[in-house]
Write a protein that binds this DNA or RNA. Sequence first.
DNA 1: GAGTGAATTTAGCCTGTGCTAAACATTTAG
DNA 2: CTAAATGTTTAGCACAGGCTAAATTCACTC
Lengths: 222, 222
Amino acid sequence: MLSEAVQDYLKAIYKLSRAPETGQMVSTTLIAERMGVSPASATNMIKRLAEMNILQHRPYQGVELTPSGVRMALEIVRHHRLLELYLRQALGYDWDAVDAEADRLEHAISEDFEDRIDEALGFPTVGAHGEPIPTKEGNIAETDYARLSELTTGQRACIRQVSDRDPALLRYLDQHGLVLGTEIRIAEKAPFSGPMRLDVGASGEQHIGLEVAEAIYVDVLD
Amino acid sequence: MLSEAVQDYLKAIYKLSRAPETGQMVSTTLIAERMGVSPASATNMIKRLAEMNILQHRPYQGVELTPSGVRMALEIVRHHRLLELYLRQALGYDWDAVDAEADRLEHAISEDFEDRIDEALGFPTVGAHGEPIPTKEGNIAETDYARLSELTTGQRACIRQVSDRDPALLRYLDQHGLVLGTEIRIAEKAPFSGPMRLDVGASGEQHIGLEVAEAIYVDVLD
DNA sequence: GAGTGAATTTAGCCTGTGCTAAACATTTAG
DNA sequence: CTAAATGTTTAGCACAGGCTAAATTCACTC
């Protein structure tokens, strides 16, 4: 059994390695920052993860998960996303609260528990924020969404996924009805990273400004 | 925040101190056994718990929880019993499986989670095995059940609580319909700790033998 | 190609929680 | 009353994960 700390590092590294900003090598500093830990501590743990064959460490270069490391990470991610969805659907948690609670619970649940909430949810394939849920076998659906920030004035789109990293953003979106599946139209694209203005709803009945269009992923409709 | 290990010891000590077999002083060895740990490790932890004002340690005599230790223990017990009941009622766990799963989860849940499952269950006062659930304020109902083993031939009684310490017993009881609330009559009391024979149900339609009548608590009906 | 600054690793330390072996205390038997 | 058995504590160690301070390597500029 992997310790909690190891699982937390593994999940963080997996997510960082999937972020398009980073190359496939994830740096020690980045890991340390994400984990809220000193770089020395990160190095320390990285060496142990390498021992365990979870990742490959090229000193001074960075870190890359091994295939078996990726498999383990996907299990953890599956637990996390099923839990998030369960908290939301079965216990009525707010959008912005499920991540933190799932972080606490994910280390504690058994396979049996996972199976039961999976069933209670009807074997979902998409999580509370639109992320794909890996299967028990370790497969994860590829998605191909555009960032909202890439769209231009006049384009229409449908919200498919939002980053769960910023609870304040999630609260803001929820308050303005910007849930998964909502249709929007770009009313005005600000020139230099100012707020992007949107029309919300099929009939465009609402207008809102968005500061963080990077964190929202959409299907482009036209 | 109390560490998991501290919480586990605290819960174990609380339960041991409540068991009628032990006096009010709980011995190091008993704690060590219950925790699956060497006596030296138990002593070690006991000293730390005493530091934290959770209990009083009389060397070579034993240990007694302080009032504040009891309060903390009751919080832990509340979490555990609410979780057990939730697992049983909301997720369909078997009687004999809820304890182990709740042990895993109880350290991880937030107050918010506790409140939500409490509400989902309709603010129950009795747990999955008939134990009283402490209130949020740290009060626990006193119960006054007889042990099934104390009854004599011909007496009738109603099952109110069973020990959760032996999953095999729980499975056996469940299979024979001996759930909480079941009425029984003592058909024959074996002379020397042999199996006690019972008639089960209001009309006594079933007859079974019980090895472990110590672990079952009842309301005597006549 | 040398120097400088940032990123990374190493060295050495701390705390929590376990262990064993040995010492010490208490109870019980003879 | 003493000795053995039993229960408890102490001493000393290990491992997981943190930390800081110092050393090292890399990348980039002149």
